[in-house]
Design a protein around this nucleic acid. Sequence first.
DNA 1: TTTT
DNA 2: TTTT
Lengths: 171, 171, 171, 171
Amino acid sequence: MAGSVNKVILIGNVGADPEIRRTQDGRPIANLRIATSETWRDRNSGERREKTEWHNVVVFNEGLCKVVEQYVKKGAKLYIEGALQTRKWQDQTGNDRYSTEVVLQGFGSTLTMLDGRGEGGGDRRGGSDFGGGAPSYDDYGSRPSSGSGSSGGASRSGGSLSRDMDDDIPF
Amino acid sequence: MAGSVNKVILIGNVGADPEIRRTQDGRPIANLRIATSETWRDRNSGERREKTEWHNVVVFNEGLCKVVEQYVKKGAKLYIEGALQTRKWQDQTGNDRYSTEVVLQGFGSTLTMLDGRGEGGGDRRGGSDFGGGAPSYDDYGSRPSSGSGSSGGASRSGGSLSRDMDDDIPF
Amino acid sequence: MAGSVNKVILIGNVGADPEIRRTQDGRPIANLRIATSETWRDRNSGERREKTEWHNVVVFNEGLCKVVEQYVKKGAKLYIEGALQTRKWQDQTGNDRYSTEVVLQGFGSTLTMLDGRGEGGGDRRGGSDFGGGAPSYDDYGSRPSSGSGSSGGASRSGGSLSRDMDDDIPF
Amino acid sequence: MAGSVNKVILIGNVGADPEIRRTQDGRPIANLRIATSETWRDRNSGERREKTEWHNVVVFNEGLCKVVEQYVKKGAKLYIEGALQTRKWQDQTGNDRYSTEVVLQGFGSTLTMLDGRGEGGGDRRGGSDFGGGAPSYDDYGSRPSSGSGSSGGASRSGGSLSRDMDDDIPF
DNA sequence: TTTT
DNA sequence: TTTT
């Protein structure tokens, strides 16, 4: 369908260390559980209440999976941009079941760490695993510096996608 | 959890005329099925391929439900902004089941019609039902023009939310 | 125009302690400078490069301004959801000038603190100012618990916007 | 800065036929003016009011520029996803000036046509210019079907980004 | 002027 | 079950 958008944006915390599996032909798949929550004040009692929502996030992409594998631990706060996908499967009794997930796969998928923490407790900021910066990864895939007249200079992403940062394009 | 975001943005087409039900205490609930799809070209065959994703959208809110009831028909193209929510229920055999929906309920939920069409076939643009504009509705609720020193002038939304459009605030 | 969306989403750091001023009729306005940046690797030299973008954010809304006043300090990391607005003004020589800002004003505007830090240096996480959670504020305004048959229970936002959390709506 | 997001989402109408220029080394740049508007009811007079916001959109990217060149005309309704960028320039008197634009350049930038219309008046839907579908273009660049063990099958995007649609990955 |  |  022309003119279609399917986008999910989450900021939340990872509920457990991610699992990473591989397909038969070797591609990695990472599964994350991410919690978001909202708080509000009860209209009658005035009490503070909270509701947590858990999201299943599935990462298909070598680069993104590497980031997940190396840096994402239980408790990490993430920014996620992906798409909704519902897949159908059969339970043991052969009945159709459906699971909806946030998929980070194609174009526009992003995963950014919003803190340098892992494993719930300790704050790793400073004594960092990250060697100078929380990792962020956009789903570029293996986008190479192919053609399109990009003769030199910096490229954010390679190929015709990028405009050299130091170009002084007279626009 | 502080610092949490749960946001879904969809642009897609409505698969069937919406159902609107009411809770026991009279509040309306609208259910929509929205299709998004993506197209791509097969790497090997070069064929054009398409994958459609169906989304369950649930609207809690009188104002939004009215818009849905009056204007949203099978085939309509909508912009939706809501939140992901998974609810648990029991099937006939007593097993736990989960359904994930895009909920338009609280703050920040939006539904906008991107065409003036309904009912699949006819293009109503021009000979419009809409009196000069496809309807759009943000989930303001019954936000009244309460207090907060807003003495006069226009208000986008009433209350302290709004800044009068014609004010010439020297910022 | 029907079917219009104007949305900006930023995650970045505040460049300086916010300024808060008041209009003549007493409404607060907060101004923030927020930095976002992207990093990439130079295609030729292989060096890591970075480009920072500075955004002017203007907050109209008493509740949001209070959060800004109390919690947002230089260095804080924020999630911002607002709208683009360009205003025209005259410089000293009487020439038209334009400034584009991210406005948090009406419906859908949000500001969430992504860390509990302020004032650049110290990490306040743990010995927190926040009493157990970084503050987040949606631009609800003075949305009261008006009408719409909401007889009791919790409300996220008051009025017809909300569905009681503990309701067991059979949808 | 790690953990940074700079995202603009617009749905609006194009104010004039786009201009497309080329850099000295031949790369295309398209400039669009897009209008969004919001309507509200005046709190006092009860009149319907409307405020239109104009956005400067700049497209760097061969693929996206082609779409703009071929399909985007005055009056077209677009979905745009890009980033905010402010550039500095000097006016005739040598004073610094700043212009803020929505840039469609790198990763995550999208342009989708939400109708098949061009040139304000006529509805081209049906007797379409589009040969069977309003065009949509994500900023993939020249992402080729490079390596990463993708042996065959369909790919949404080529390279390690994609998971073959017909794979039956047991996740 | 932030952050890493 | 939509749309192109």
